[in-house]
Computed example of a mutant assay.
Amino acid sequence: MLIRLAVMVLLFICSATAALAVRQKVKMSVQPHVDTTLPSIVIISPIVNRGPVTLAKGAKLAVKGIATDESGVASVTVNGKEVTIDDQGAFAADVMLNPGQSQIVVAAFDANGNKSQQVITLNRSGSVPLADNVNGSGQGKNYALLIGINGYKNIQPLTSAINDVNTVTQVLRDDYGFVTTVLIDAMATRSGIARELARIRKELNPEDRLLIYYAGHGFHDKETDTSYWLPVDADQNEVTEWLPTRDVTDELHRCKARQVLIVSDSCYAGTISRSFNPNLAGEGSRNNYLQKMMGKPSRVLIASGGNEPVADGATGHSPFADAFVKALTSPFDTQFTAEELLTRQIKESVAGHSAQTPQYKVIHNSGHDGGDFVFVKLR
């Protein structure tokens, strides 16, 4: 009898323990998921991948970037002030800087209250001195607008355009003293590109130089002989959303800058303008040649190819961008023209490793008057 009673008690304890375990398991299964993932912040401008940034001029700095999170980005602040963000998480804000060292704090908050932030340390100093001609007279500045698009919304994405732009930006800024503006992916809409072109054009002085670098899809309409850059939101069936390159050259015609160079790494890039073969030899010494080229207005194009498709990069950079960066990093001289850069260091390298042949051309009806874009390496 006692044994039977003990067995019954043991069975009761086991069943109670099992029931408790089931209840705990059910309770755990209905616990709500707690989101602890921090939002991601990518700073597009200024470029900050080499520590403190030295500004070339001005007290106002445009801070641009993209914030993303799986649960959605609720808000973004720059130095404690909330800024507007679009559906893709892109944001922009103007920040005023005091002379000397400053810090900019960019914070992103998701819908569950998680916060991440990036701190940018900058040093506002005087203007970067530039040798505007071989005698060193004149105080014009170098500006660059760089556009790179990988994440096309409606057409085939690219793999290396953004990496190309970031690397070229770094070389232009660090080695040549360019003041750079970068538009990548969500910021590179048709209206965004046109707006930045117009803004930079208004800031330029007659002694300045402007370089525009485009890495993205291109298209040439043979029936109308019109070439296009395709913004990030372009639809292949809606031409009105594309950016005609004639719109870009129209901006150049109104541009005050002495020299403008477009570097286009896209399909059919060579169709932007008609061909032109400059006389590289010039008259007299090479210094004389550089003086003449720097003193005359120029509107020229370096195209990664002609009326042909060009290669995207499978190993980090496109064939053209790889050659362009190497040529700028280790040029044959400290001062050189865009035409020299192409013919001496880029053309053979790209044509020898791909099916495309880079070209140098004058952009007609845009203010060209016999000069060339002259690079001056600072270090």
Rank of each mutant, 00 (worst) to 15 (best):
H217L: 07
I44A: 13
G284I: 05
A323S: 10
E251K: 12
V26I: 13
Q24G: 08
G138C: 05
V30C: 07
F332M: 08
F12T: 15
V310S: 13
S304V: 07
G352C: 04
V376C: 08
A111W: 04
L341I: 09
K347W: 02
A321M: 14
S71I: 03
D69Y: 06
E283H: 11
E339C: 05
R190D: 05
A355G: 11
E70C: 00
P99N: 14
I162C: 04
V95K: 12
P99M: 09
A144G: 11
S266P: 02
D235R: 12
M28W: 09
T357D: 11
S15T: 15
I212C: 09
V73S: 04
K81Y: 03
L261W: 14
K115V: 15
V78T: 06
A327L: 08
M187K: 15
Q359E: 15
V53H: 01
A323Y: 04
D110A: 07
L10W: 09
T337F: 02
Q356P: 11
V179W: 00
L210G: 14
V83L: 12
I200C: 07
L38Y: 08
E82P: 10
K326C: 01
K57Y: 01
L243A: 07
H33D: 09
R201G: 14
F178H: 05
A311Y: 02
I13E: 05
S275E: 14
G80F: 07
Y213E: 12
I302A: 04
H353I: 10
G148K: 03
A215E: 12
K361P: 00
G138P: 10
T180H: 03
E207S: 14
N98D: 15
V182D: 04
E207L: 14
M187W: 07
K57W: 00
H364S: 12
K27H: 14
Q24R: 13
D164P: 10
A16F: 15
V73Q: 08
L341A: 10
D247M: 13
K377S: 08
D110T: 11
K25S: 15
A198Y: 05
G313D: 07
H33N: 08
D208Y: 05
V134K: 01
Q356I: 06
N49H: 08
H368Y: 10
Y143I: 00
D265H: 08
V26P: 00
P129C: 03
D175M: 10
H317F: 07
Y214G: 11
L10P: 00
T249A: 15
G313E: 01
N237S: 14
S15G: 05
P319M: 03
V171G: 10
D175P: 03
S266L: 02
T84D: 06
F12N: 13
G313H: 03
A311D: 10
G270S: 05
T159D: 12
D247P: 00
T77L: 11
S330M: 05
E203W: 01
G177F: 04
K27L: 14
A303P: 06
